[in-house]
């Protein structure tokens, strides 16, 4: 009895020692079959460029779009003999598809760096200001805004990027359809009027080049 207990303890200790020596991580019993998340290293951020801007952002349009891409081709005679796991089953064609949901925002406003001395006319407490026309200043679709809804087959990084860019273009089109630029023009005028009023001007005329 004592001998068998000693033997069991020895085997357990030996197993732990082997696991330690081979650097094998002992799995958590509760999540034994769950993949451990891949964590990135905390690498430094390097500044590449510093730009001086003067953008008055007045309207943002948040949106959600879907973009997809698929490649369909005829199966070769060899492929027809082996089971197809791509979702096409027994069909004579095979392929791959990728569906991406993209969430982001489009920011519009006026670029005040385009103002020049001719844009401003002042006389006593009167001011006339001509703003450049509103434009899309930023399109933000970050990695956290993308969701891979469906991915079958092997997709290269470049192909995935192309689908994401398609989603981004769709969002810009949608924002333009919503009239983001005309709204940005109106709001820029209103904001500049308020600003000029607080600067002491009482006769204010703000217009855009649009």
């Amino acid at each position: 009895m004592k001998k068998s207990l000693f033997r069991t303890l020895f085997i357990v200790l030996l197993t732990f020692l082997v696991l330690l020596l081979l650097n094998i991580k002992i799995p958590d019993i509760k999540n034994i079959f769950r993949s451990r998340p891949v964590v990135i290293d905390n690498t430094p951020i390097l500044i590449k460029e510093i730009r001086e801007l003067a953008q008055l952002c007045t309207i943002t349009s948040a949106g959600e779009v879907v973009a997809d891409s698929s490649v369909i081709r005829l199966k070769s005679p060899v492929e027809a003999l082996i089971p197809d796991l791509s979702g096409f089953g027994q069909l004579p064609v095979s392929g791959k598809n990728l569906v991406i949901i993209g969430r982001g925002k489009v920011i519009a406003g006026v670029d005040l760096q385009k103002l020049n001395t001719q844009s401003v006319y002042v006389k006593d407490d009167s001011i006339s200001l001509t703003l450049p026309k509103a434009e899309i200043l930023d399109i933000i679709m970050n990695p956290s805004g993308f969701e891979i809804f469906s991915e079958t087959g092997d997709w290269s990084s470049e192909a995935v990027t192309a689908v994401k860019m398609k989603a981004r273009d769709k969002m810009v089109v949608r924002s333009l359809q919503q009239g983001i630029l005309s709204k940005a023009n109106l709001r820029s005028i209103m904001l500049m009027e308020n600003f000029l009023y607080s600067l002491g001007f009482r006769q204010i005329s703000v217009q855009t080049n649009a």
Partner: peptide
């Protein structure tokens, strides 16, 4: 998701690498 009014005067942009 909607169209929202903002009042931001953006004056600096940093382009960074990681």
């Amino acid at each position: 998701l909607s169209l929202k009014e903002i009042n931001q005067l953006v004056t600096a942009e940093y382009v960074v690498n990681k």
